[in-house]
Design a protein around this nucleic acid. Sequence first.
DNA 1: GGCGAAATTGTGAACGCAAACATCCACGGG
DNA 2: CCCGTGGATGTTTGCGTTCACAATTTCGCC
Lengths: 353, 353
Amino acid sequence: MTPASLPQRGPVMSDVAARAGVSHQTVSRVLNGHPHVSATTRTRVLAAIAELGYRRNLSARVLATGRSNVIGVVAQNTTLYGPSSMVQAIGEAALGADLSLTVGHVAGYDATAASRRIVERLVQQGAAGLVFIAPVDAAAEAMRLVPDGVPIVTVDGVPEWECANVAVDQYVGGMLATRHLLEAGHRTVWHVAGPEPWHGSRAREEGWRAALAEVGAVAPPMTRAGWSAASGYQCGRMLARIPDCTAIFAANDHVALGIMRAMAEQGRRIPEDVSLVGFDDVPEAGYFHPGLTTVRQEFAEVGREAVRLLLDQLATGQSSTENALVEPVLIPRATVGPVVATGPAVALKENAS
Amino acid sequence: MTPASLPQRGPVMSDVAARAGVSHQTVSRVLNGHPHVSATTRTRVLAAIAELGYRRNLSARVLATGRSNVIGVVAQNTTLYGPSSMVQAIGEAALGADLSLTVGHVAGYDATAASRRIVERLVQQGAAGLVFIAPVDAAAEAMRLVPDGVPIVTVDGVPEWECANVAVDQYVGGMLATRHLLEAGHRTVWHVAGPEPWHGSRAREEGWRAALAEVGAVAPPMTRAGWSAASGYQCGRMLARIPDCTAIFAANDHVALGIMRAMAEQGRRIPEDVSLVGFDDVPEAGYFHPGLTTVRQEFAEVGREAVRLLLDQLATGQSSTENALVEPVLIPRATVGPVVATGPAVALKENAS
DNA sequence: GGCGAAATTGTGAACGCAAACATCCACGGG
DNA sequence: CCCGTGGATGTTTGCGTTCACAATTTCGCC
């Protein structure tokens, strides 16, 4: 290790103090906005800071105070649209609240071990608070490693954790989608659910069942996909062979895309033969063929709420168990239509291979 | 601020030392794997650490050493498929190299100011090295804030920065796509490019031009889209009205999706009337209608290379200017076909609104 | 059997900052 | 005119770790 490889340390507080002709403590006071600093001194210190290009050392600050204005975000599956949008939204909200953000990305394959490491590091770095993006139970396991006094907010968590939480109301989302299909005249609605461990999958399923129950419709057997188009396609190939199946509520937009593909291959037209509703409203959903009717999640809103909940706890020093729900919105496009041929089988293999 | 809101500090090194009956320095040596510690002492210290649940304070460590095993990643536009895949890939590669990762997400709207803040914070936190995901020039501006001695690797940067860089060879990607279309029999290939500031857009465009030049084809006028399906759709509506336009190379898969939509609305069939190649190979590309032929970028490979380059610099203490290129791969699917009707206009408005 | 080298352990200081405490000063009321 | 009050500033200490150096022990070997 050559000496040249060490980063030369910049000016420190005492350098600034010397230049401004004051003590380092006065510099600290200026920096932290403490009262009892005269205007002339303040400007002198500020000038010295600017001239020297001084920047505070965060580690020293955290070491001395035990706290920081950094909040940590623990996230997984950040290549999926939902989680990555969440991180983005939290980041923007944090910026607006003058908080810095550190994101720990949990790689997919060993979630619990990786989460532990990430949480430990965030805590060690003195994170003032933590946001867990925890759409599955496994993500919450690492929450126990967080010492008391460090506020936590979960996103897409469940109320049972007794922890401040913010989520899109997936239950309502499931109802919106299902009702929309029922209102188009379908006798019942099939559901391709997301992976079981996801809280959102379960809530959407419950919403779907509730909406069916409202009108006394009988719930058809449910299939389960991953979040991917590929798994949607697999489910779609089965559903395409069921003549009764004229309305489908898909776990998310990508699953819906896979279903659309499977339907097309079987010659079942959307929306003439089969109606379809997705979930998420990914940016390209409107450009699917045809444009996908879906349920939009307002991730930006969720991010803002998460930061707000965290700031509340930071301000009061009390841990909260508030459960904020963001309303989803149905975005009607072109994949839902009235029932054209009720009951009778559709023409299979019209233009498929 | 109630006292209860302060996180109770855990055991520190001297607590461990007391329990193990050694000095705090010996504990430090055990923790850092220094030689000259007897086996019995080591086990005793380790036992004390386990019993107390001791964890090192990262801030103190960084303060004392001026370095850490944390590497920082500066990323923007992390809701796009490319950047988010990159972050994920770097994260997994870093995990394998026993590096911790801190990701600074630059929110979209004020890239330069936000980048500055993020870089400052990462440097202050004592990041051992930085990875800049810098597909546009603006992202590089903050690189100057990094003190000498902190190694930097750029991803999707340009050689002019004289900085270790790793990128997918977009030039080759552009050639692959264009050649594939030419080999299908098209006289020339149209290109819907990505936003000008992106390095990748420019390189793909050059590859496209080069491939056309190889066979003496004349390059048609080029249009430019964003990265979104919406902007692809806009461009597609224009191209759909040009009878000569039978082969298109799109900036990325989402743009291609927009073009597909526009073509469908104009009654131009893919691939019978128009052939199309995308870029990225997003997971759902194969489920577009029809399945999209595209050029795949191996992001995982890029992530591994980036971490390797960083570790090299960390080990040697020398800053490198190595420029690693990852080869893209053409994924043939169903949107490219031979020219059916050359020249003559196609039937417009066959089934569009 | 004693001497040098190596192994092992301990001591003090430093890292850069903020909090607690101490000091100095000006001003005003009794 | 003196003392009290409070604003402005300086001094000291400690946060938890590592580093440089010192001290002690162990061991090999002539």
